[in-house]
Design a protein around this nucleic acid. Structure first.
Length: 228
DNA sequence: TCATTAAATTGTT
DNA sequence: AACAATTTAATGA
């Protein structure tokens, strides 16, 4: 299998925002950023905690989650390996507005706030990357409102998968997630059964391939445009 | 390396 | 939600 374990440094160098940095900037990033292991089911960070770093997923998968006043669990989105998040609260000097929970054993990279702010001030390409990411996420959430209210389960699952790989800023990342259909159900707001049926339909359409314990995305654009 | 078993995940009703 | 079928991982000969 693709069990090639990537080191923190290798992962940092593979991100797109790192490609535009100068050698000196890259050096500081590699020096300051540290790695953290979060076991399956563990918290990467909790709602209400002050933000101390910008967080990237080296390996594994996390979900952004929140609990309604009634105590009901609401999942916003999943973030696969290659994704970075937390810039919103960092920029606003705010606290986390959601829990981040590991769905599998996960390795995360933490870039300290000072390093993040320094990059923001000294690297235009980095700032541009953040703008694109924020814009991408805005579109994603606008789409969610429509998705939630108008569309059927199959389409919801399709858009959910598309958004995870779409963040068109993780280029070249392996389009394979180790995620059970039960977890896909949580991410797309569907029951496990519905997720199962939806995935089988999407596989029939040639958009994904169902593996044991995981999904391989074959056609991101097709998923995004999928409608029943 | 192979067989056995337990645990996780999937498919169906 | 419950059940059966399938796949993987772990164990020991």
């Amino acid at each position: 299998m693709d069990n090639q374990v990537q080191t923190l440094t290798e992962h940092l160098r593979a991100t797109i925002w790192a490609r535009c940095l100068t050698a000196a900037q890259m050096k500081r990033v590699e020096t300051d950023t540290f790695e953290q292991f979060v076991p399956k089911g563990g918290f990467v960070c909790r709602k209400g905690e002050p933000m101390e770093s910008w967080t990237g997923i080296i390996d594994g998968l996390v979900k952004m989650n929140n609990f309604s006043p009634a105590g009901k669990s609401v999942t916003f989105t999943g973030v696969p390996a290659g994704g970075w998040f937390g810039e919103g609260s960092l920029l606003k000097d705010d606290r986390r507005k959601y829990d981040v929970i590991a769905l599998r054993d996960t390795r995360v990279a933490q870039m300290p706030r000072a390093t993040f702010e320094w990059l923001l001030e000294t690297s235009l390409p980095f700032t541009r990357f953040l703008l694109m990411q924020l814009n991408e996420r805005l579109g994603q959430f606008i789409g969610l409102v429509e998705t939630d209210r108008l569309l059927n389960v199959d389409t919801r699952v399709a858009r959910c998968l598309a958004s995870m790989f779409n963040s068109h800023l993780y280029p070249g990342i392996e389009k394979v997630v180790q995620i059970s259909q039960e977890e896909i159900g949580y991410l797309s707001g569907a029951s496990r059964q519905s997720a199962n049926q939806a995935l089988q339909l999407l596989e029939k359409e040639g958009l994904v391939r169902i593996d044991y314990g995981g999904i391989r995305v074959l056609d991101v654009e097709g998923l995004r445009q999928f409608e029943t």
